[in-house]
Design a protein around this nucleic acid. Sequence first.
DNA 1: TCAATCTCCAAACGTCTGGTTGGATTTGAT
DNA 2: ATCAAATCCAACCAGACGTTTGGAGATTGA
Lengths: 199, 199
Amino acid sequence: MGSMAWDTDATREKLLDAAITEFSDRGFSGARIHQISRISGCNRERIYFYFGGKAELFEAALTRELVTALDDLPIVGSGPVAIADFAGRYFDLSRSRPSLARLTFWEGLEQGHPVGAETRALRAANKVSEIRGALPALSEAAAEDLLLTIVTLCHAWVSSPNVPLVITGTPDDERRRASIIRTSELLARDAPGMASQPS
Amino acid sequence: MGSMAWDTDATREKLLDAAITEFSDRGFSGARIHQISRISGCNRERIYFYFGGKAELFEAALTRELVTALDDLPIVGSGPVAIADFAGRYFDLSRSRPSLARLTFWEGLEQGHPVGAETRALRAANKVSEIRGALPALSEAAAEDLLLTIVTLCHAWVSSPNVPLVITGTPDDERRRASIIRTSELLARDAPGMASQPS
DNA sequence: TCAATCTCCAAACGTCTGGTTGGATTTGAT
DNA sequence: ATCAAATCCAACCAGACGTTTGGAGATTGA
C-alpha cells in the first residue's frame, strides 16, 4: 500500500556522504570502512552491497564531489575584474567545501589516475571558453594556465595549511583571498596586446 | 681509533632514504614498514631500534627532507627578474626531487601539524628577507604572499598531476615552468611605487 | 494469510599490520 | 681466542583491516 518501502536511496546517500567525509579527512589508505559505516548509521555490509568495496566507494564519492566542481561558478561580466571575481568565488567555494580540494589532492597523491577524466576535462574546457569569452585577448593556452593557477592556489590553501603556516605565520583567509584575487587579475591583464608577452 | 666497528650511521641513512621514498610514494597510512625494510636492505627490527616506530620514522624522514628545502636556492641579483629566476630554480628543484613537494602535501593532508615548524619558519623568514632585498618596494606581507604563491604552484605541479591533466591535457613541464616564472615576475612587479610597469 | 523478497545487522573469517622477542651470525677490538 | 656490540632472521603477537555469511525482521503481492 501507500507506505514507503525501504528507503534504499537514502541509505546510499548516507553512505556516500559519510564516505566523502572520511575519505576527505584521511584519504583512501587512512579511511576506515568501519568509520564510514559508523558515521553513516548504516551497516558495514551495505557498503559492499551497494558499491562493491572500498575502492569502488572511493570512486563513487570522488565522482560525486568532483564532477560538479566548476558548475555553479559562472564568470560574470568581462575583463580582468571578472576573472578576479571568479577567483574569489572559487576561493570561497574551496573554503566552504574543503572536501573538494582535499579529495583532489588525495586522488593525485594516492591514486594517480583521475576519476571521471572525460567529464572533468569537458567542464574544464567549458570554463576555459568562458574565460576566453571574458578576455578575448588571451590565447587558449594562456587561459588554461590561468585557470590552472587559480584552481591550484585555492585548493592548496585549504588542503595544505602548513606551508602558509610556516611562511606567513597564522593563516589569514581574507589576506590570502585578496592575494589570489590580485594574482588572477594581474595574470588576466597580462595578455598580448596589453603588454609585451613571453615568447 | 680509525675504522669503526659497524657502520651504524650508514644503516640509519639507508633506512631514512628508503623511508623518504616509501612515505613520499604512499604517505603515512599507505606506507608499509615491511617495504621500507625491504628497499633499505636492512632488517625490519632496525627501524624500531633506531627510530622507535613508524610515526617517529615518518617525522625523521620528513625533517631530513623538508628542513633543507630553501637552502641551496639563493636569490641572485635584484628586481622582478631575479624573483622569476628564483621561481624557475625552485620549479626545477621540485621537479628533480618530487619527494619534497609530495611529503609536504602528505604532511598537510594526513598529519596536520608541521614538523620542525620553528626551523622551517626561520628559513622561510630568511627567504622573505632575501626577496625584500631584491625588491625593496615590496611590503613584508607581499613578499610572504609571493613566496607562498611560488612554492604552492611548484609543489602542486609535481604532486597533483591530474588537475593539470584535466585542464590542459598532457602536462607540459616547460610550459608550466614558463607560466610560473611569468606569474612570479608579474607579482614581483606589482608593488606600490611601481605604478606603471614597463615590461 | 502465506510465501517470496528485500533490508538490515551481528558475528565471524582470513589476512595483513605494526611491533616484539630470542637467538644465531657477523664484525672489530683486545 | 675471546668478547661485546651490531646485525640479521624467523617466528610470534595482538589488534585492526576489508570482506563474507546466515539469518532476523520488514514489506509486498496474491
